[in-house]
Design a protein around this nucleic acid. Structure first.
Lengths: 210, 210
DNA sequence: ATGTCAATGACCTGAAAGGGTTATTGACAC
DNA sequence: GTGTCAATAACCCTTTCAGGTCATTGACAT
């Protein structure tokens, strides 16, 4: 018997998943929650084999939940189930230890198959997700460079940002005007697809760009 | 109509695959060969959408064939079909551009499903293979450094900060006022001995506080 | 020689950040 | 039952950030 906990903030969907999975032979839903605020305590109490995890939840997002659960018990299989199919969230989940990544647009049959697969040691993914994961192993002949085309100069800027330098201080340090600093950072934000310096620094550090 | 070429040095298996796939609606086998000695010319002539590729073939192995085919036409989807499930061969194939990796022990149904998936832009893999691919993204467990007395709540704030949330967005996300967000962050900056959010995020990520 | 692109610089605008100060509540410890 | 502290909230103020648009220079490649 495979025990499953569900984390999904949409009440109706959560109820639906509970019903769907619970009615399946060999599966038992041992927990269903709308957020992961106290997820470690819940996992400790429910002892699921598999966790079905949404990403967008109030309070604590699914990405952090994955890390917390895997730290508490690395044997738990975590199956992501989300609408997000961007690389950022995908690889954040995988690096935290998720064992599968399904998009919500997939069918119920796919979901059930995936749950069986993940329990059997597989790594079920939605088709497009799997392709993108495989593509990251391809040799860098493709135009998609892992560093997003960040130049050496831009790396310098990023590095100073991580040390808490303001634009003005960066300008003084590099002997360029504040406006140029701004220009560089605007370019960096565009290349990294982020909105602000904080997010840029996080992405750069996580992806080892600097 | 999906056109398929088969590279498989076992004569009986190749004939079987040709029969199995050819009898499937929507598929047409346009080439079936026992080795890849002249694969580029064959691909050029046959123009398959998908190539089913064995690894252990006389003269030229399937791993090199993958590279040659992808160099000739990057649009071709290459589906590995092999008995080998070691990491060396697996990642060699992936880095050469394979779009899927199936083990021969999988069922015929799996193979046919995989061929459909790969044509639709997916990345089908045998369960154990997929899990190993996903595991390569897991970041190695690093011991936590002293966390400067950062509380759980504060970790949540930090986590949202790394995702580019503004103070206001954090407030909405956590159901608290912007002023409280500011208060929390002020405390965090003090505890971490930093001046701004950017520096805090850098420090938190580098020292694995979050 | 022409085009692309990195690096440099500027101006305007509104939104956001961050420092200072003060205060209440509830939990937990001593 | 008193003290500590996390979490909550508000006000003031100045600086900084980030988006938009426009422009010049020098390298390098086609």
């Amino acid at each position: 018997m495979t025990t499953i906990s569900i984390y999904e903030d949409n009440d109706k969907l959560r109820a639906l998943l509970e019903l769907l999975i619970g009615s399946q032979e060999g599966f038992a839903v041992v927990g269903a929650y709308g957020n992961g605020q106290t997820i470690v305590e819940q996992i400790e109490h429910d002892r699921p084999n598999v966790v079905l995890m949404d990403i967008d939840m109030p309070g604590r997002n699914g990405i952090d939940c994955v890390r917390l659960v895997k730290e508490f018990d690395p044997a738990v299989h975590i199956m992501m189930h989300t609408v997000f199919d961007d690389d950022d969230r995908l690889f954040a989940c995988l690096s935290n230890g998720a064992a599968g990544y399904l998009l919500k647009k997939d069918t119920a049959t796919h979901l059930l198959t995936a749950l069986q697969e993940v329990m059997a040691g597989g790594g079920p993914m939605s088709p497009g997700i799997a392709r993108r994961v495989l593509q990251t192993f391809q040799r860098p002949e493709t135009p998609r460079s892992p560093t997003y085309g960040i130049t050496l100069r831009e790396q310098e800027l990023l590095s100073l940002l991580t040390r808490g330098y303001t634009y003005r201080m960066i300008g003084i340090e590099l002997h360029i005007s504040v406006e140029t600093v701004r220009r560089h950072l605007k370019n960096i934000y565009q290349k990294l697809h982020v909105q602000c310096g904080t997010e840029a620094v996080a992405k750069a550090l996580r992806e080892r760009i600097i």
